[in-house]
Amino acid sequence: MSISVQHISKSFKEVTALKDISFEVKEGELFGLIGPDGAGKTTLFRILTTLLFADKGTATVAGNDVVADYKQIRNSVGYMPGRFSLYQDLTVEENLTFFATIFGTTLEENYDLIKDIYVQIEPFKTRRAGKLSGGMKQKLALSCALIHKPKVLFLDEPTTGVDPVSRKEFWEMLKRLQKKGITILVSTPYMDEAALCDRIALIQDGKILQIDTPETIANQFPKKIYDVKADNMYLLIESLKEYSHNHSVYPFGEFVHYTDQRDDFKPQELTAFLQSKGLKNIYINTTQATIEDAFMELAK
């Protein structure tokens, strides 16, 4: 196991940030912690990177205990915190050299590992980090986290606030790093990114809701799920919420995802109900559940 977390709990005064969290990440795995702000993801990252003590439980990273062997862990992991944490007044190149020196290595020694990422910011290597765009900061932070060739990479919400194109590029980079044998633990609030991980843990309010492959979690969705559409979205949502047999009603892009309480649900009855509410061009059809549907069902 590359990461092993056993019954970790952590509270800050009266706020419980993590409640009895356990999971394992295999060597070379790309493992996603999927959950919204305030779920406890950052607290968990800080415990695993030895920056914070847990109240209860144990954890090991690359075979080292997070309390007893914290020095070994600090040498063998890369950590990219959610908030940009590089030196704003140093240039791109100075930041990289600084982090390389701290870890007793050089930019040249591990250039191969960061090459793909670094070439994209190399044209700006004399620019101060504070003056970079969001996408470039992210690439520099990742380069700095990789400069000492870590065994395990911790990425705390690397794509939050990043546009879909840059997010896609970032995940392609992660896949390439994984091929080089690095274990990656990444957190994200974007449910569509969950599908790109080998396995995921859905986390909310400090508790793990489920751990499995993204396909399994989506396939295990307990209800038949329907795409519903009509000419007036606002009225459609209001009407579906009013329908007494509904189990869940969630806007989902151009459709509303609807589940019914009954096993013998007949879409025609719902069509008739929606017509009686004055809706037109009604479309109801079964659809495939996504990770986001699964998350909402579990978090309900």
Binding site: G35, D37, G161, Y234, I237, Y250
Partner: peptide
Amino acid sequence: DEPTGGVDPITRRQFWEMIYKAAH
């Protein structure tokens, strides 16, 4: 301006229902 960044999926949808209501 990016009102729902990082918000959980259920609340994100409740937020959009508020948007629909305001527009309505």
